[in-house]
């Protein structure tokens, strides 16, 4: 390998890191909150940090911790993880055309690190500037997100441990407020709002069903409503 390609690889890696910086800032508070809540929900510091190391998926980690804290059965926890993460398959499909010729030694780790944030950064780059040498750029973005997430998880875990009364100080509330704050900005489009309302109503009606079936039914009702409303809106647009 020549000196030149080596330095251009490093340049690409650093560009990936640089373009991901805004995402790092956005993810940091969630890392802290995740670590804190995980401890309050009864995870050990090893399992809390282990979840960030091994799963590395913000929203399903939050939901996972709240389900583990509530003593949910494993199949339900896993089914929820699957449903919540399914959008990543879409990212995987979108980036495949660029990565088709890369070796598996590249594709496996880059897939492991494929978050919403890295997808947004990498997809934008490849679409506008092409994917030449893109695995190094993607790696830079991935490592930045991963290191950032682990760092802030550890900060949150130590915060959770130094405030042992936190569990009594409204852990449930913190969880609810976090979810509400994450979901609210997504509801500006009417089908998404309809999905949220339908899911909320079904969740209320189904409270207490075994195996958290209420959650699955509510999710199904929400997604179906969103699709129906989107279909209606599309038809109206066509007719005008």
């Amino acid at each position: 390998m020549s000196q030149q390609t080596c330095s251009s690889r490093r340049a690409l890696l650093l560009e990936g890191v640089r373009d991901t910086v805004p995402m790092l800032v956005g993810a940091a508070p969630f890392g802290v909150i995740f670590g804190t809540l995980a401890i309050a929900a009864g995870l050990s510091s090893a399992t809390a940090i282990g979840m960030s190391v091994l799963v590395f998926a913000g929203s399903s980690q939050f939901i996972g911790v709240s389900l583990i804290g509530a003593g949910t059965a494993l199949p339900v926890l896993w089914l929820t993880t699957f449903v919540v993460n399914l959008r990543h398959a879409l990212y995987s499909a979108t980036l495949l055309p660029f990565a088709r010729d890369w070796s598996l030694a590249w594709r496996w780790p880059l897939a492991f690190w494929l978050t919403d944030e890295t997808f947004a950064v990498v997809e934008h780059r490849f679409r506008t500037k092409g994917a030449q040498g893109g695995q190094w750029y993607w790696l830079g973005s991935s490592l930045a997100m991963y290191g950032n997430w682990l760092l802030w998880t550890v900060v949150g875990v130590s915060l959770g441990q130094s405030l042992p009364g936190l569990a009594n100080l409204g852990l449930d509330f913190a969880m609810g407020a976090t979810f509400a704050a994450i979901v609210a900005p997504q509801l500006k489009r009417r089908p998404a709002l309809g999905a949220a309302v339908a899911a909320g109503v079904v969740a209320m009606l189904g409270r207490g069903l075994p195996y958290k079936l209420d959650l699955m039914l509510a999710a199904l009702a929400g997604v179906t409503s969103g699709l129906l409303l989107e279909g209606l809106a599309g038809r109206k647009e066509q007719s005008t």
């Binding site: 709240s66 449903v83 609810g176 979810f179 339908a198 899911a199 409270r207």
Partner: peptide, 27 residues
């Protein structure tokens, strides 16, 4: 990836999060 599934995935996060939040708030 069928098109309907593609579109359905957009509604999974708002649906799941609302299903968790609404009972926390009301009950």
């Amino acid at each position: 990836f069928p098109d309907w599934l593609n579109r359905a995935l957009h509604y999974v996060p708002p649906a799941v999060l609302s299903a968790l939040v609404v009972p926390m708030a009301l009950a």
